[in-house]
Design a protein around this nucleic acid. Sequence first.
DNA 1: CTATATAATTGACATCCTGTTGATTATTGT
DNA 2: ACAATAATCAACAGGATGTCAATTATATAG
Lengths: 211, 211
Amino acid sequence: MSQPIDTPKTDRRILRSRRALNDAILDLLLEKPYEAITIQDITDRADLNRATFYLHYGSKEELVVTALEEQFDQLQSGVPNLAGNDLPAVWRSEYLAIFHYVADHADLYKALLGEQGTAYLAYRILEYIAQDCEMGHLDLLGKAASKTAVPLTLISWHIAGSLFALLVWWLQNDLPCPPEEMVGYAEQLNVNGVLAAFSLPPQSGLPAAHG
Amino acid sequence: MSQPIDTPKTDRRILRSRRALNDAILDLLLEKPYEAITIQDITDRADLNRATFYLHYGSKEELVVTALEEQFDQLQSGVPNLAGNDLPAVWRSEYLAIFHYVADHADLYKALLGEQGTAYLAYRILEYIAQDCEMGHLDLLGKAASKTAVPLTLISWHIAGSLFALLVWWLQNDLPCPPEEMVGYAEQLNVNGVLAAFSLPPQSGLPAAHG
DNA sequence: CTATATAATTGACATCCTGTTGATTATTGT
DNA sequence: ACAATAATCAACAGGATGTCAATTATATAG
């Protein structure tokens, strides 16, 4: 997203070190709570000197954020582009992608979003979802919001908060139901709830959440 | 909530130390981000030796949770008991209490719930709200949930997540509107959204959110 | 009111984590 | 193959943490 994948000028050692640090923290997050991971742990796992870490990253937070960017790119690339379709279809497509992605990396996100995680990341994720909501659905939500006194930004944060809480619950309870079921719940609570609050028709073809 | 307020057998020094530590961390949270506060900082501010801290609390987290219990008790005592009234009235009463309470301690909660805070506390608060929802409104929500396939617990987490996100947004934007306005938004998005999703009538007497 | 038992407080110790600096080593481009 | 570059490393100083034995303040019995 930020750097071209193949810049011949960058030193081979840099790529090797960054890759090793990147993999190391993702490994360690599956074994220890975030707070308990030290720079020494990371560089031990990466087979590097501790000082080398500071040549590439200023802090643990910076490394984690960078490591997760990679993961998010993976998520985004998996979402089919439905621009031009109706909002409910786009919404369900994104929800399906999100819940499947989280299911695929459940251990990692259980560590990151639970009480052992870091508020910095949780807040960034909440903000990311809210902004994605606001940017992506300006058209229909904007129309809906104009009929009410609720600012568009608050609607987005409401949706983001709901999705965030559902994800936390799902993870902390060890994924007790499949992603499709969660998407059904999220649609009913979140999407239809918001639409109904603004007297808009519910999304077409909502299946009764399967039991 | 846990201890009788006046047990003559407890050593005067204990009460004095606990009170001092309690006040110290609440003071410091207004000046430094949570992670940056050290045990030394706390005991310096409390005029105690650093070792004394460990006689009373096992960690910073434990102290903060204890210090906040006091605050929460203060909140609970301010909520009028409306048992027997209809759900919307109870709901609005609680929302008003929450938003006013947060406004009264805005600096503290901005520090605790922002990206400088701690995931441990944020998660505890989210869980607390969700459980409060589930326990307090079993009657009407239970009826509603029985008509759908959405588990009651998920409805509660949805509501808690929405409220949590609205509070975070409100705090991070330096309380750009009065508590009453936020309660109006929360009612429309959250309460009426949920009710509408389950084909229940919206709460009586909902005022058009004032502009 | 005093003396004694109790236990809260303290100063000091060993250990660990952090961030940086100068010396060493590997890589790039000529 | 060689010189310039800069990434890596070992070692250092500064702080934070958690835990002692020794000291001091408190509560209670006589």
